[in-house]
Design a protein around this nucleic acid. Structure first.
Lengths: 337, 337
DNA sequence: TACTTTTGGTTAATCGATTAAGCAAATATA
DNA sequence: TATATTTGCTTAATCGATTAACCAAAAGTA
C-alpha cells in the first residue's frame, strides 16, 4: 500500500545493514552470509523491490535499451520484424524502444536524437524513403553505438545490413511472368536512390534483357509505392498505346492500388493483365484475385538483426564495417498471375 | 571522430569552469554571463553534446519514458492508436516504449515488469484477451505510476479508460441489419470476461429484443475472434438447421474468416447472408465484397489516451479513479450488408 | 602463542546532470 | 567611506545501484 518505489536503502534500513550489503546479497555475493541473504530476499519480496534500471544503467554505461526505427509499424512486414527483434532481445534482458519515421527524413532525425538522448545501447533501423543525407546516421556511429540496418540500408554507411536479394527477386518475378507467356512487362518501382528499389529496377531491366524482351521507357516508374501511387501508375499504364500484359509492382500496396484500378476498369486479372506484388502482406491473400508476391522472410530478418546487435553488445569498442547478410527471397504464386 | 559520448565534464574541462556552470549555461541561467554562455554553447555544438537522459532521469525521478502495451502492433487499429500516442507524447518531450502481449497473460506480466524496471513515468495499455487476473495491473498502481487503459479495460482497476460505446455499437449494427430486412441475426462474439466483448454481446441481445426478434442460443459464440475463429464459427452457423440471414462478427478478422467460408461455399453476400465486422481494418475495403464495419476512432483514442497521461505527468502524487471517456462509434455501411 | 586466512560485512567513490548553498569580486546605494 | 546588492561563478550534495578498498572479528595454522 506504499504507493512508492522500494529502493536498496529501504531494505537496508529495515535490516540495519548497508545498501552495499543488500546489493551484494541480492546478487548472491559469496561474502554475504546465508542468513543475511535470506533476510534480504524476504524483505525485497515483501516490499516488491524492483531495481532502478536508471541507476544501474548510469553506473554501468549500459541502458539495456535498444532503439528500433522503422518507416511504419502498420505494415505487416515491419510489424513482424519488430516482433522478432523484440523476442530475441527481451530474452537477453534488453528492452526495445520503437519509433516510426513515417517515411519522413525530418522525423527520422528527431527519432535518432531522442534515441541517442535515451542512451540506447544500439540502434536497428530501416531507412525512410525520403532519406538521402546520411549525416544523422553517421552521428550514431560517431557516438560509438552499434547500428544495424535492415531492408532499406546504405552501403556507404559501412555498417551491418540484413536484407533479401532484391536483384534476384526481380529475376524470379520476370522469369515467372515470361513462363506464363507474358511479353510486355511493366514495373511500378520505388525511388532509385533507395538501394533496394534500385536493385529491383536493375533486376527487372536485366531480366527483360535476358529474355530478349524490349524495355519500354513508359513501362518503368518511380514513386513512394503507396496504394495511391499504385492506382496512379496503373492508370498511366492503361492509357498507353501499348498497355502491358503484366505488371510487377515493387510493393504489395502499389500492387493493391493497381488491382483496384484494374477491377474498376473491368480488366481481367490475370487473363488480360497479370499482376505481381512484393512483400507478402496479409491482404494479398484476402483480395480477389489473391496477389502473387515475394516473401521477404520478415521473422528471420528480425531475428538476425537482433542477433547481429547482440554480437556487439558486450564489446566496449565498436568498430563496424559493411557486412551484408542477404537472404534469398521466395516467390509465392497466387491467382493474380 | 571521438567515438565517445560528450559529457558536461568534457565541456567544463575545455573552458576550465565547473560542470555546474556548464549545466546552467546550457539552461540559460541568469547567473551565468553572456560570454560564458556563448563559449559553452559553441563547444557543446562542436563536441556534439547530448545530455545523458539517464542521469537527469535518475536525479529528477522522471525518465520521460512512457510504456505502451498492446496485444499486437500489426492490427491497424492498435498501430494507429500507437502512432497518435507517440505523436502527442513526443511533442511534449516524452519517449514511448512499445511492448506487445500477443494476447498472452504471461507475456503481459513480463512486459509490465520490464516497463516498471525501465522506470517509465506512466503506462498506457490495452489488455490481452487472456487476462482475467488483475494483480499485475494493481502492481503498477501501487508503484504510484499512472495507468491509462484503452479499448480493452476493466472497471475494477479504477483507472482512466478510453474507448468507444460497444453496447450502442451493437445496437447500431442490429438496427441496420433489421432495416435491411434481416430477421435471423447471428453474433460471432469475443469472450464475455472481456468487458468490451461482453458489452457487444449484451448490446446485440438487447437490440434483438427491442426488435422483437428471437434469440437463438446457437447464434451466439465466444472466441478469440481470429480469422480462424471466424471461419470455424461461420461453418458452425451454416451447419445449423436454421442458418442465419445475417452475421455480426465482433472483429473484422473474424468477419474476414466468415467471408472466406461464405465465398468457398458460394453463398451470396449480402444477398443470402449479410455480414458486418468491427474495427474498420483497412482490409475491409480491400476484399470483395467490402465489409460493413464499425469505426473505432483509433486516432482520437490514441490522442486522448496520451493527453490523459499528460494530465498526471506533472503531479507528484497519483490518485486515480475510474474515469471513462467514451466515444460514439460510427457505422460504415459497405457492400457486405 | 603468534601469525595468517577467511568471513561478513562497511565506507566511500562512481556514473552524469542538476541545484541549493556559499562565496569572492564587482557594482550600487546611503 | 561603509554597507548592501548583484554578478558570476564554485562546492558539495543528490538521485540509486554497484564495486573497489578497507576493516574488525572469527577461525585456522605453525
Amino acid at each position: 500500500m506504499s504507493n512508492k518505489k522500494t529502493t536498496l536503502k529501504d531494505i537496508a534500513g529495515k535490516l540495519n545493514i548497508s545498501t552495499a550489503a543488500v546489493s551484494k546479497a541480492l546478487r548472491n555475493d559469496s561474502r554475504i552470509s546465508k542468513k543475511t541473504k535470506e533476510a534480504v530476499k524476504k524483505i525485497a519480496k515483501d516490499l516488491d523491490y524492483q531495481p532502478n534500471n536508471l541507476a544501474s544503467a548510469l553506473r554501468s554505461g549500459k541502458s539495456n535499451l535498444v532503439g528500433v526505427m522503422v518507416p511504419s509499424t502498420s505494415s505487416s512486414y515491419f510489424s513482424s520484424v519488430l516482433q522478432n527483434i523484440e523476442e530475441v532481445l527481451n530474452s537477453k534482458g534488453y528492452n526495445v524502444i520503437v519509433t516510426q519515421s513515417n517515411e519522413s527524413y525530418t522525423k527520422e532525425c528527431n527519432n535518432i536524437d531522442t534515441l541517442l538522448f535515451t542512451q540506447v545501447d544500439g540502434i536497428i533501423a530501416s531507412m525512410a524513403n525520403e532519406t538521402i543525407d546520411l549525416n544523422y546516421f553517421e552521428k550514431i556511429k560517431s557516438k560509438g553505438i552499434p547500428l544495424i540496418l535492415f531492408d532499406r540500408g546504405e552501403n556507404n554507411l559501412n555498417v551491418d545490413y540484413i536484407g533479401i536479394n532484391d536483384y534476384d527477386s526481380s529475376h524470379m518475378i520476370v522469369n515467372h511472368l515470361v513462363q506464363e507467356g507474358r511479353k510486355n512487362i511493366a514495373h511500378i518501382g520505388g525511388f532509385k536512390h533507395t538501394r533496394i528499389f534500385n536493385n529491383r529496377i536493375r533486376g527487372y531491366i536485366d531480366a527483360l534483357q535476358k529474355h530478349k524482351l524490349t524495355l519500354f521507357d513508359d513501362y518503368v516508374s518511380e514513386s513512394n509505392l503507396t496504394i495511391e501511387d499504385g492506382r496512379a501508375q496503373m492508370k498511366k499504364l492503361l492509357a498507353l498505346k501499348n498497355p502491358p500484359d503484366a505488371v510487377y509492382a515493387a510493393s504489395d500496396y502499389a500492387a493493391l492500388g493497381a488491382l483496384q484500378v484494374l477491377k474498376e476498369e473491368k480488366i481481367a486479372v490475370p487473363k488480360t493483365i497479370a499482376l505481381v506484388g512484393f512483400g507478402n502482406e496479409p491482404f494479398t491473400t484476402m483480395v480477389t484475385p489473391t496477389i502473387t508476391t515475394i516473401d521477404q522472410h520478415s521473422a528471420e530478418i528480425g531475428k538476425i538483426a537482433a542477433q547481429t546487435f547482440l554480437e556487439y553488445a558486450d564489446q566496449k569498442t565498436t568498430t563496424q564495417q559493411l557486412n551484408k547478410k542477404i537472404l534469398e527471397a521466395k516467390l509465392i504464386v497466387r491467382e493474380s498471375s
